[in-house]
Every structure is written in structure tokens, then in C-alpha cells.
Design a protein around this nucleic acid. Structure first.
Length: 118
RNA sequence: AAGAGCAGCCGGGUAAUCGCGUAUAAGAAAACUUAUAUGAGGAAAGUCCGGACACCCAAGGGCAGAACGACGGAUAACGUCCGCCGGGGGCAACCUCAGGACCAGUGCCACAGAAAAGUAAACAACCUGUUUUUCAGGUUCAGGUGCAACGGUAGUGUAAAAGACUACAGGGGGUAUUGUGAAAUACCCGCCGGGUAAACUCCGUUCGGGUGCAAGAUUGAAAUAAAGGCUAAGGUGACCCGCCAUCUUUAAAAAAAUCGCUUGAGCAAUAAGGUAACUUAUUGUCGAGACAGAUGAUUACCUAGAAACAGAAUCCGGCUUACGAACUGCUCUUUUUA
RNA sequence: CGGGACGUAGCGCAGCCUGGUAGCGCACUACCUUGGGGUGGUAGGGGUCGCAAGUUCAAAUCUUGUCGUUCCGA
């Protein structure tokens, strides 16, 4: 789980990130990238969205969110995704395909998307 | 031994590495770091009932409305629970029932049938008179219909019949006894013209009304502005653009913070009362409290193969629904052996 | 968190209040009309009435539970 300073808290901030409309995706997730930073001392903030359309069960939605958070935590620790540091915020939206995947596929798709395409 | 019925119990464990929420302590005194402790359920779910708590409205009462409905109890309360009565099911253990009233009124009972409730026979049949037929009168036992037929079976009786009369059983009413009571038992009375209220309705009981922790309280900022976006609807206009108004958005910055927020009809043990639900007393104990929302990832071993349903959001008491594996106790039936 | 509405033929809807026969339009099939097609006409097929239980002689309809879809308020 990420610490609180890495979390994007406000609904309005998420909507602002959507409005930039800089999207990358694969079969598992959409990733919305926010505006570029002015002050580089601030950390990148993440938000994770798993809608009710993906599953009615709160347990399954929570599981997907936890896997995504853990992946981002490991990626930040490895500092393998340095090139996303220029963005203020990142919103990650899960797709229905994630429901049947395991942790490794979540980790690999997030790492390739964020390190290569961003 | 086999097959049933009822009740109970559990909801993976240990270790290692990385990591998260909360509390406390220390350092720092802004962010933060370290240590320790602690961190989802039996249904947390559905939101179907009942409360607590909070605010708004309200003089009191009625009407209306809603829910409930054998009886006695439990409870803060309940549509829940316990016991018991009656109906139904089962050989039995046991299970199950929205279980008041169609003698207040109004409806409905398709098709079939003579007739579906009205002092009722438009089919048919029986008997009597007339007697070729027809017709008139009496009757509804038997027939057939239907979920249901104007009380059942057997006899007496009669022109043919009929509770008209008798016996037996059924329903209803009255009296007596037993029980707190629903009711049961006994005796007596020919009293016996359907069903349906999860049809309207009537009777009884309960509920001040509404809103729900995003309830509500406190502190601070702003003082109704600024910058955009949009045009389906409003104004101006013949129409379009435009303008006004409306609507809507605004990243780190003022765009909130704190309280409510978890010590409670709490949990555990023992004792007493009660058939039980439950109650009382004593002792011990504190077991999540977030605010885009904390329990995860990887590995090894054990169990049986690390398996299901499933994630607290103000808090309790229930109900309902979903669901995994192993096992324990009591009871019943059948068979076999002693 | 709270409150509504709707599940009926492949699709869109009636019927439910007041219980006994499930119907309408489009689509589908066959035939007629045409040189052929469309249009038009005639006939026909197709429905566990979301699911489960109860009330009733009888349930799409009444009652309860449950599943799904969708809307509204904060």
C-alpha cells in the first residue's frame, strides 16, 4: 500500500487529469497522465479506479486495487519508471480483463506501460 | 450397521523478507523517522423489520394511513424469540401454518351443471289426476356436472319424498369440571341454507409527524467574486450569430479542519431464579475507527489439496439470503447379534 | 446511505388494479400479386410471463422472499 503522500485525493483532481486526455492503455488497464510538473520537489500522485461495472463484489474490486497499488509500490522502489516523474498525477483505471489475471500480469503490464510508453 | 431428525463447533496455522491504517512513547518540532501494541464477518451482505442517538415541525384529540392478528410469557422494542393450544404432514424423532370475523354490509365463484345462495328444479327422473299424446299438481331420493351441491351413513315412513322421525358419527350452541389462557373432557339441546377476507370491509392491538451521522455541533476562510466551458430548455430576436440569465468546471494554493466516532441494552467466567426465551448478582476485561477509504505481495513447511460465501463506514437487537470442510452430542425407525 | 420503477415471442410494448381465453406492431415462414424485387394481401409458427415458495379449485395477475436492469435525492 502506498503512503498517503503518494495518493491523489480529490475528485476534482481526478477530473482535471482526465481533461488532459493523455491516455495509454493495454488489455488490462487505461492510464491517464496529468499535466507536467512546475515544482519537481513534489511527488507523483496516483489514483486507482475500479468501477462497479467490472464486478459487483467489493472483495474482488478491492483485490484488483491492492494488486495495482502493490505493483506501483514495487516499481517506485525499484525506480524503474523515472520518466513519469514529470507528471503531477497518474490515474489508473482497471479493465474487466484484470478480474481473471494474477499479480504477475498486473505488475508486468503496468511496468511496461509506465516505463516505455510514458 | 443403515437411514433419518434436532442441536453444537470451526471459518486455516507457523516462520522469513518487503509494505499499509490507527494509538502510545521517543527523536524532530513543518513534513517526517524509529520502537511497541493493535487492526473485518458469521453472515461485515440484502436493507426487510425494530430501537438508540441527532435535528426540524407540532397546544391537545379525532379522522385518515400503515403494520400486525390463537393463547401465555420474554424484551428497550419488534413483523423477533421461548413455551403452549388447535389445524396439516411424517411409522417415529420431529417439522410446519399471515392461525380474528363471511349470523354488519358489498362483491366474486370461469367452463360445466337444473341450481354457485334466491324459500331455488328452464336437464332429467319419481308419483298422482286426465290418460293416445299433451297438460296440471306434488317431490328432488337416485342420475349427471363441478374444487365445492343446500348436511353424512343405515333404517322408519310415504302415492312418491323430505331431520318429518330414530340410531351412529360430524358441525354449532348451552351447562358443568380442569387449566392463568388458547382449549380439552362429560352431559344436554334437532339448533344444522356453501366457499372466498394474501376480495373490499369490520373488529382488536400498536405507531405524534418528517428527515436520517452527507443527522448534527464547533472553529476558520470567502462574501457571492474571478477565470473558463456549454447551448437542449428561458429572455432579447422573424431566424442565425451574439449578449443576458441559467447550468457546469476549476491539480499542488483558502477550496477546509476538528468533534460526533466507538465503554456498549458490550464481552467472558462463576453463582442464583425460571421448563425455556431471559433476568439478577459478583469478578475480570477493553477487542478496528478509515474519509478516494487501511489486512497486501513473495517464499518455505504443516494440515487434507493453505477450500467456499464474502470487506466494517453512526451503533445495537432480529429476520432473510449466500457458502466450505472435518467432527461432536442427543433422539427416532428398521435390521442383526448378545 | 435513502427512495422509486421495470423484467411477458428475436425487438418494442399491452394485459395485472377487478385471478379462469396470453394479445398488438415490426421481424420470421409459406402462398398469392410481379418478367424479377420492393410494396400490398392471405394463412401460419414462435412465449419456463426473471426465479422460488405460499394463498386459491385455479396465479402473468394476489402475498412474501430472491436475482437482474435502470432512474432519482444527498
Amino acid at each position: 500500500m502506498l503512503k498517503k503522500k503518494y495518493r491523489l485525493k480529490k475528485y476534482s483532481a481526478v477530473m482535471a487529469t482526465y481533461r488532459v486526455n493523455n491516455v495509454i492503455s493495454d488489455k488490462n488497464v487505461f492510464i491517464y497522465l496529468g499535466k507536467e510538473k512546475i515544482d519537481y520537489s513534489l511527488p507523483v500522485k496516483f489514483a486507482f479506479i475500479v468501477s462497479k461495472k467490472i464486478s459487483k463484489s467489493a472483495v474482488k474490486r478491492n483485490k484488483i486495487k491492492r494488486r495495482m497499488r502493490e505493483s506501483i509500490r514495487l516499481l517506485l522502489k525499484n525506480s524503474s519508471i523515472k520518466n513519469i516523474n514529470k507528471y503531477i498525477s497518474v490515474v489508473i483505471v482497471a479493465k474487466k480483463h484484470l478480474l481473471d489475471s494474477d499479480f504477475d500480469s498486473v505488475y508486468s503490464s503496468l511496468s511496461t506501460l509506465l516505463s516505455e510508453k510514458a
